[in-house]
Design a protein around this nucleic acid. Sequence first.
DNA 1: GTCTATAAGCAGATAGAC
DNA 2: GTCTATCTGCTTATAGAC
Lengths: 238, 238
Amino acid sequence: MRDDETSTPAANLALRQSGTAREQQDSAKKPRRKASIRASNETHLLACAEAVFAERGFEGASTALIAERAGLPKANLHYYFPTKLSLYWRVLDDLFEEWNAAADTFDASDDPVEAIGGYVRAKMELSRRRPLGSKVWANEIISGATHMQDILLKRVKPWMESRVTLIERWIAEGLLAPVEPRTLLFMIWATTQHYADFEAQIRALAGKRALSAASFETTTQEVVKMILRASGARSPNI
Amino acid sequence: MRDDETSTPAANLALRQSGTAREQQDSAKKPRRKASIRASNETHLLACAEAVFAERGFEGASTALIAERAGLPKANLHYYFPTKLSLYWRVLDDLFEEWNAAADTFDASDDPVEAIGGYVRAKMELSRRRPLGSKVWANEIISGATHMQDILLKRVKPWMESRVTLIERWIAEGLLAPVEPRTLLFMIWATTQHYADFEAQIRALAGKRALSAASFETTTQEVVKMILRASGARSPNI
DNA sequence: GTCTATAAGCAGATAGAC
DNA sequence: GTCTATCTGCTTATAGAC
């Protein structure tokens, strides 16, 4: 798998050009290859776009910079994604799919310790695995969430409402302290996403070893423990 | 006090122009007034800049938009702040001063319950009072904190190190659970700043009444309780 | 101290040859 | 499917009259 996020523009350009020559040869005989060229270029552009949107926000990002990072002429970017906004929407959509997959872990168990603990861990792992995506999301919300109203209202809100009901049931059963469910969920999101969004601050304050694999695992365990204590979760008696 | 953040450009323009006429009259006879014109215009521009930087990040913000919101010609902005970056630095510097004032509340008491609880409350109040400032800070960190390395390393880091020592002492005295001090501080920052930075998401998910004065006070108490539980803080026996 | 006009360059997007 | 050249408009910043 190509490392879209760390390779240099020059390296990308070389990869692109050799790839392009091969595919163009094939395209005369095997037009079916075109679809995979499209898929490969779109995926690559989306990864580069995610990085640039993360660093500079929607308004600050330029299609020229995204194309340059992808090692493609700007015109090609506009061939695959007619407008900057259409590219941005695709990035946000991809991000929501990952968010949704992590959200599923909340339902892995009826035990609040396992459900909440597992969800916090899944969110921490997402922050570690895809920090740029988290930053794009954060940037979008900070800027007023104008392009995300639909996702928030039609997808995130219903998920939250049903999880609020579940949390209230746990509280009624004495398995959780009487917390305000939304405040708990916001605390989980804020704390876990902090390790992606505020990476640069953590690096400056705690040193870059604080974000190494071993430290991150220790921190994840620490965060899980603290969130469980904050929520007063206990396992049901069997 | 003029409400810099909610007045319309047209209203600002009217205010500016009448103010300007008055000051120009005076300036012939009382040159000392010039200093206050400068101070007033700079303050006003800084407030408008904070809003635009919050919404669009540094790269996405334009000096034209900032000047328009301030009801001033773009050339005047460049008269007071030679470059966009110099304006941005002034905004960041002002923000750090507020951050620093809130940080002082951490030392208000030797009792961890009062110290941590008071600090969380101060941070929540800052999020409520100056959400745009928090967003500018967040945007800057997300974008890599390139313009804030000095503040982070020379001002925030020393504060954090001494607070880490204090927290470790509390743990040794049995007044706090054996938490990783930096993880606790990050959780406090993330959770409290979430109410400023992710305002738009909270509004979409919990309704705008969730951010009303009464709800915010309830939420603040809830957050204080949860952070204290997470840290396992207890007051010393007297 | 204010403000019009403009310089110099970069943005998003497209035309059209290959 | 690729890519050069270009259109149009907006960007930061400044010159110079008032």
